[in-house]
């Protein structure tokens, strides 16, 4: 099992450096944050405003789109079928891709934490929040990728889901109705938690909403897998 997961990880590492579409998802927001944090200096803005804003968008975008894109591309090109007929089990494949995307996104999270100059317990809390958010996004991406027969189908579902997940936290700053809706999403809760990461207080609501979102993602993946499998 470990050997097959390592093989998938190796394939993903080799592939990503030549896959500009995926690569840009991983580096866009960390680079943008580096630039904005250093170039924009407006006194009215809260401390590390861009770190907190872009980190949430990163959680909602990069892992979700990467996971669904990788799975749907492999399904479309029938490379996944070849892998599954080569003694690689579905779970080994999903773990290999999932672990890879989670690890790369955590490197991105590390860049955000550097931009935010987080240290000690704040750094740990920030990374933990990011880790959980990235995991939920990966599960949603896996559900979409598994459900889709090809890349076009995956994109048509991924884009609206990604827009809702990643832009709701930003839009909630301008509209109270959207703010109510945002509270129901895991990205909204991640937004709240990261917003107060220096003086973190985790409420029951934070944990409950994230857990419910995660459970929905797992159920979505389970239904997709039962319906289409990875073939």
């Amino acid at each position: 099992m470990i050997r097959n997961i390592k093989a998938i990880l190796w394939k993903q590492i080799k592939d990503t450096f030549k896959n500009k579409t995926i690569l840009i998802q991983f580096i866009m927001f960390p680079v943008l944050t580096l630039l904005m944090e250093n170039a924009v200096n407006i006194e009215e803005l809260p401390e590390h405003f861009f770190v907190k804003l872009f980190a949430v968008m990163y959680v909602g975008m990069a892992p979700l789109t990467a996971m669904s894109a990788v799975i749907s591309e492999e399904k479309e090109k029938n490379t996944l079928r070849v892998l599954l007929m080569s003694n690689v089990k579905s779970m080994e494949y999903l773990l290999g891709v999932g672990i890879y995307i989670w690890a790369v996104c955590m490197i991105g999270a590390g860049v955000f934490s550097i931009c935010g100059k987080y240290k000690g317990s704040t750094l740990c809390a920030f990374m933990l929040i990011m880790a959980v958010g990235i995991l939920v996004s990966i599960l949603i991406g896996a559900a979409i990728g598994t459900w889709s027969k090809n890349q076009m189908m995956a994109t048509s579902v991924t884009v609206p889901v990604m827009m809702v997940v990643s832009f709701l936290p930003m839009l909630s700053m301008f509209n109270t109705s959207i703010e109510k809706l945002e509270k129901l999403t895991y990205s909204g809760q991640i937004h709240t938690l990261i917003g107060n990461v220096e003086n973190l207080e985790i409420s029951v609501e934070n944990v409950l909403v994230i857990c419910i979102n995660m459970a929905i993602a797992v159920l979505g993946f389970w239904f997709s897998y039962r319906r289409s499998g990875l073939e």
Binding site: R3, N4, K6, A7, W10, K11, K14, D15, K18, N19, K77, T79, S86, N87, V88
Partner: peptide
């Protein structure tokens, strides 16, 4: 085939398995 991998790497993936 894995389009963005070389001939060698296309085989190496399965060689690893």
């Amino acid at each position: 085939l894995y389009e963005r991998l070389s001939c060698f790497d296309n085989l190496k993936l399965f060689a690893k398995i």
